[in-house]
Design a protein around this nucleic acid. Structure first.
Length: 309
DNA sequence: CACTTGACCTGTCCGC
DNA sequence: TGCGGACAGGTCAAGT
């Protein structure tokens, strides 16, 4: 589910709330969602304080005072929900209120199947629960169970296989059009869409922003990398940064309502030009947007202004 | 090595 | 209302 902008939105929100929290307990109901052993958890998590929340590619890194890091991948349907229960249900002015929590509750991530469950966590999709010393909680919900949380010694994080292989961050200054061109050369004989989705080429791009940036650059997603010119790559570089920055500004994309730390909803889908807009008019040329399959993924294109070679 | 496909899971939607 | 199949914002392990 989440791509770079969504994970970055989650990171910023958690960074504003978690530092200083002390972990009092951890529980999980699905071993693959939290593969570390209970003994490890007790030793590395319990009693440690959250120092900071970082991000690399689509991975969240929660650094702890114990010099361990909680590494989290949300995959398709993962979300992190922070709940600070500062008002007891019984103390609410109206005890029948359907708003059992204070405004401190913040829900991060997109795609939760039922937003009415706010205030009723843990729920069916809750895989991991962290309870802090002040009784606030962090829930890792993940309907499809693809995501995971693992604990690593902080100094070893850069040596995790994924971290070693993952490509450059597309929004860092060091990321130039030339670097994008060079990185793409390792996937010369595949489609540009498959190359963009390959995290070893470039970090953080997924299905939405691949389609959106390729539309911006007027490149058909099925175009082979070897047929794309340096000029096209330069334009794609620009469009990637534009789309990712806009999405971060909008708090990410979501088809279900959610709010980030500032109380804003993720509204990039409002700005999407092709993604999930099949059957509608291309905002650039008016042709009808089509949906097909490229690199095994649902792919949205304008048949008129995205040329294929 | 590079590329493609299937697997990992649950839930929803759509056609019969 | 039920059932089968396709599909969903991601990554691995296999296969060719």
């Amino acid at each position: 589910m989440p791509e770079l902008p969504e994970v970055e939105t989650v990171r910023a929100g958690l960074q504003a709330l978690l530092p200083g929290k002390i972990i009092a307990a951890e529980s999980h109901d699905w071993p693959k969602s939290f593969p570390n052993s209970n003994a490890d958890v007790a030793a590395f998590l319990i009693g440690s304080k959250i120092v900071q929340v970082r991000r690399r590619a689509k991975v969240l890194l929660i650094d702890l005072s114990s010099n361990y890091t909680l590494v989290t991948h949300l995959k398709m349907t993962g979300q992190l929900v922070f709940v600070s229960k500062t008002v007891e249900d019984s103390k609410l002015p109206n005890s029948n209120s359907h708003i059992p929590y204070s405004n401190d509750e913040v829900r991060f991530g997109a795609g939760h199947p039922n937003d009415s469950l706010i205030g009723q966590l843990p729920d069916k999709s809750t895989r991991v629960t962290l309870t802090f010393k002040d009784n606030s909680q962090l829930f890792f919900n993940d309907q499809r169970k693809f995501g995971w949380m693992k604990v690593y010694p902080t100094p070893e994080v850069p040596n995790i296989d994924f971290m070693v292989k993952v490509g450059p961050e597309p929004l860092e200054e060091a990321f130039t059009p030339q670097i994008l061109f060079d990185r793409l050369q390792r996937r010369k004989n595949t489609s540009i869409k498959a190359a963009l989705l390959d995290q070893t080429v470039l970090a953080g791009v997924g299905n939405i922003y691949a389609d959106e940036s390729l539309w911006g650059a007027k490149i058909h997603p099925a175009t082979l990398v070897k047929h794309i010119t340096a000029e096209q790559v330069a334009l794609l570089h620009k469009e990637l940064q534009f789309v990712l920055n806009l999405a971060i500004e909008q708090g990410g994309s979501s088809n279900h309502t959610y709010v980030n730390a500032e109380g804003k909803k993720g509204s990039y889908m409002h700005f999407a030009r092709v993604f999930r807009r099949e059957g509608q008019a291309c905002p650039r040329c008016g042709a009808i947007i089509e949906k097909s399959k490229v690199a095994g993924r649902g792919t949205h294109t304008c048949p008129a202004c995205q040329n294929q070679r």
